[in-house]
């Protein structure tokens, strides 16, 4: 139980520092030393959700609860509008090296299932690359594809398809509990 609380506290501290510049490869170190010197692990009531993840990752009010990146038709590049969101997630991963993320790429339903699986993989890789460039470690990240198999919107028109051209980010805490 104690193990869980430390990342929860960390995440609270990070969110507090909203004016901190984007993390680079060395980011996170000062944060870690700060808690390291703290020596106290206070319990935050309601700090964990039912899956054992810090509320910060799942509370709808937190930016980190936003886990989906949408892609344009035939595109496998992260749009500029998602750069801030990915920066927030990268920052969290930098500050919480024990946390892991599964990135699931998705496509719309048109075409070959296996080819779509590979296209979804390209989307997941694009997200992974952004997070890595922002300081997340390779071993924290796994990019996989669900292809067209898990549509968020089961419809058969462009508005449904645009919801399904997507990458989702799932978290797993240091103790192995989480979303995958």
């Amino acid at each position: 139980m104690k193990k869980l609380v430390i990342p929860a506290l960390l995440s609270v501290l990070i969110v507090g520092c909203s004016t901190t510049p984007l993390p680079d490869e060395n980011a996170g170190a000062p944060v870690e030393s700060r808690t390291g010197g703290n020596g106290v692990a206070p319990v935050v009531a309601g700090g964990l959700d039912s899956r054992g993840l810090p509320m910060e990752l799942t509370d709808p009010k937190s930016v980190l609860s936003r886990r989906s990146i949408y892609f344009a038709l035939d595109s496998y590049e992260v749009k500029d509008e998602y750069k801030d969101l990915l920066a927030s997630h990268a920052k969290y991963l930098v500050a919480n090296r024990g946390f892991k993320m599964l990135i699931q790429g998705n496509t719309d339903e048109r075409g070959s299932r296996e080819y779509n699986l590979s296209l979804g993989q390209k989307r997941a890789e694009a997200i992974k690359r952004s997070l890595t460039l922002l300081g997340a470690k390779e071993e924290q990240l796994e990019s996989v594809s669900l292809g067209e198999e898990k549509p968020k919107n089961a419809g058969h028109d462009e508005s449904a398809w645009s919801e399904n051209r997507r990458g989702d980010m799932l978290y797993k805490a240091t103790d192995g509990r989480g979303e995958f």
């Binding site: 996989v144 594809s145 198999e149 898990k150």
Partner: peptide
């Protein structure tokens, strides 16, 4: 076959 039971193929 390919199964997604582990949240990945």
């Amino acid at each position: 076959y390919v199964s997604f039971e582990k949240k990945k193929p």
